[in-house]
Amino acid sequence: MTVDVLFPFYGDVALMKQAVHSVLRQSYRDFKMTVIDDGYPDSSIRGWFDSLGDDRISYERNDDNLGANGNFRKVLARATNELVVVMGSDDVMLPNYLQWLVDRADEYPGASIFQPGVVVIDEHGNSVNGLVDAVKSIYRPRGSGVRVLTGERLAVSLLRGDWLYFPSLGWRAETITNIGFREGYEVVLDLALALDVAMRGGSLLVDSQLAFMYRRHMSSYSSVRAVSGLRFDEERRFFENISAEMADKGWIHAARVARLHLSSRLHAASLLPATVRHGNRDGARHLLRHLVK
């Protein structure tokens, strides 16, 4: 079974190369990697991919910058196989990742999304466990081994606190391509997609087996938007919309959790002192609005 590794890129070139090499080091060799460069200003990138000499990898550069949502939607249209990974361009697959995904997909044919065990690293590759990841561990389903969540239970679990690591997720292609990424979201597009899967009857498999390294650093897109406060403007709009959708579906508990979005408010509160201390008035204003609305 060939796995589509979709690789939307814009960012640190050195970290991108580490991510690509981690795919090439997979013990499971049957994959197709599709790289779409969203116009990153480095003319050497195409030549580097050509130098790899691996016909499993294709590289394409956008003439115009599409932004995160646009580029994710474009790369998703390139999926042609049964299993899909939309990998972050600065993350690292452990050598067992693709084998893990293929095995779990075979063992659990009813599962739509696959979440392996993840270790979080910083820009230097050191293991870290900051506040965000400590909170994720609180909301992650209890237990070890394989667990499968579906329906409103899955939606409530993710709305209480998004404990997924999106770049590490494996997907049934028919699930992710039929639903796709919602337009208008740059930061919460991953949570929106997972909730759309839940609302359409799909299931999420979570496994404690370690298979992926997720990179968290302050220059990442989501981190920059968090400090500016713009992330939370988007989150608040999303939670208002998804709460209404959950209510229409009759998922009253999920709708209430979305309306409250407590973990999102707490995240904003945790950033407020540093934002004020650095004199970022616009950022502080966005964060305060998120806390009270």
Score class of each variant (00 low, 15 high):
residue 98 L to A: 08
residue 15 L to S: 06
residue 254 A to K: 07
residue 269 A to V: 03
residue 271 L to N: 12
residue 252 I to M: 13
residue 249 K to Y: 09
residue 20 V to Y: 02
residue 219 S to N: 14
residue 140 R to N: 01
residue 165 Y to P: 00
residue 52 L to K: 02
residue 60 E to D: 11
residue 214 Y to E: 00
residue 94 L to K: 12
residue 206 V to A: 07
residue 109 P to Y: 05
residue 44 S to D: 14
residue 19 A to H: 05
residue 252 I to V: 15
residue 132 V to Q: 14
residue 282 D to R: 14
residue 247 A to M: 08
residue 11 G to Y: 01
residue 276 V to P: 01
residue 35 V to W: 11
residue 237 R to L: 12
residue 10 Y to I: 11
residue 79 A to N: 01
residue 284 A to I: 11
residue 126 N to Y: 01
residue 240 E to Y: 12
residue 52 L to A: 02
residue 123 E to R: 15
residue 253 H to K: 13
residue 139 Y to T: 13
residue 67 G to L: 11
residue 267 H to P: 03
residue 236 R to I: 05
residue 113 I to R: 03
residue 47 G to R: 08
residue 203 S to M: 01
residue 83 L to T: 06
residue 190 D to T: 13
residue 113 I to F: 02
residue 269 A to T: 02
residue 167 P to Y: 06
residue 67 G to P: 09
residue 154 L to G: 05
residue 60 E to W: 12
residue 266 L to M: 15
residue 17 K to H: 02
residue 277 R to S: 08
residue 245 E to T: 10
residue 139 Y to P: 00
residue 184 G to S: 06
residue 238 F to K: 09
residue 205 L to D: 11
residue 10 Y to N: 04
residue 273 P to R: 13
residue 40 Y to S: 01
residue 73 R to P: 02
residue 11 G to H: 06
residue 187 V to P: 01
residue 75 V to H: 03
residue 106 D to G: 14
residue 148 V to F: 08
residue 9 F to L: 03
residue 163 W to P: 00
residue 158 L to Y: 12
residue 150 T to H: 15
residue 171 W to M: 07
residue 143 G to F: 09
residue 288 L to G: 05
residue 251 W to M: 15
residue 228 S to F: 04
residue 56 R to D: 02
residue 272 L to W: 13
residue 42 D to W: 03
residue 4 D to K: 11
residue 159 L to H: 11
residue 88 G to W: 09
residue 249 K to W: 01
residue 125 G to P: 03
residue 272 L to P: 10
residue 149 L to N: 05
residue 163 W to M: 01
residue 186 E to S: 13
residue 6 L to M: 07
residue 177 T to F: 07
residue 151 G to I: 08
residue 148 V to Q: 02
residue 8 P to W: 04
residue 227 V to M: 10
residue 272 L to H: 10
residue 72 F to V: 04
residue 189 L to E: 14
residue 51 S to Y: 06
residue 90 D to H: 10
residue 60 E to R: 13
residue 237 R to F: 03
residue 245 E to L: 14
residue 249 K to P: 00
residue 174 E to T: 15
residue 227 V to Q: 13
residue 157 S to M: 14
residue 141 P to M: 08
residue 70 G to Y: 07
residue 33 M to Q: 04
residue 37 D to Y: 03
residue 195 L to P: 04
residue 65 N to Y: 09
residue 75 V to P: 08
residue 74 K to T: 12
residue 90 D to N: 05
residue 171 W to E: 09
residue 251 W to G: 05
residue 54 D to S: 03
residue 290 H to L: 05
residue 75 V to L: 04
residue 98 L to Y: 10
residue 89 S to N: 12
residue 43 S to M: 09
residue 222 S to G: 02
residue 24 L to Q: 14
